[in-house]
């Protein structure tokens, strides 16, 4: 119990530091009507378990290339390390249950991809956010 408590305290201390150091923001196309999403829904979407928007349109997932923001996103939303996420998608690919999402090299290309595709969803460094895409709040 003691150990668990100390772990919780550790994470509580750790999180604000990280968020201060580097953070991401979830983005969609401006045509997308959604304003906010559940964390669990986001997780489902990024693990390929949920592939349709509520209006029936398919979801195109866009990932950011390896880097601090991707790592934070993977830990924070998917509870996985980036490597685990890669393996996860390889498994999905091997068993034929899913196709790994596209991984774009930088924030700029991600913003471009989301801005150009009404069905897309992605994330970018919070500092690189601009009005070309729409920010989604996390509940």
């Amino acid at each position: 119990m003691k150990l668990a408590k100390s772990f919780i305290v550790f994470f509580l201390l750790l999180l604000p530091v990280r968020m201060e150091a580097a953070d991401f923001v979830l983005v969609v196309n401006k045509k997308n009507p959604l304003e906010s999403m559940d964390r669990s829904d986001v997780k489902k979407i990024f693990l390929g378990k949920k592939t349709f928007w509520p209006d029936g349109q398919g979801i195109d997932v866009v990932l950011l290339a390896e880097g601090e923001v991707h790592q934070i996103f993977a830990y924070d939303i998917l509870n996985k390390s980036p490597r685990q996420l890669t393996l996860y998608w390889k498994q999905e690919l091997f068993s034929g249950t899913g196709v790994p999402p596209k991984q774009l090299p930088d924030n700029k290309s991600v913003k471009a991809a989301v801005a150009s595709n009404p069905q897309a969803i992605g994330y970018v460094d919070i500092l690189q956010f601009d009005e070309s895409v729409k920010k989604i709040k996390l509940d």
Partner: peptide
């Protein structure tokens, strides 16, 4: 890179299953 063989991989996975 598996990206190049996604189609083949999916066929294989289907056959496998």
């Amino acid at each position: 890179d598996p990206e190049d063989y996604i189609e083949a991989l999916q066929l294989l996975a289907a056959a496998q299953t």
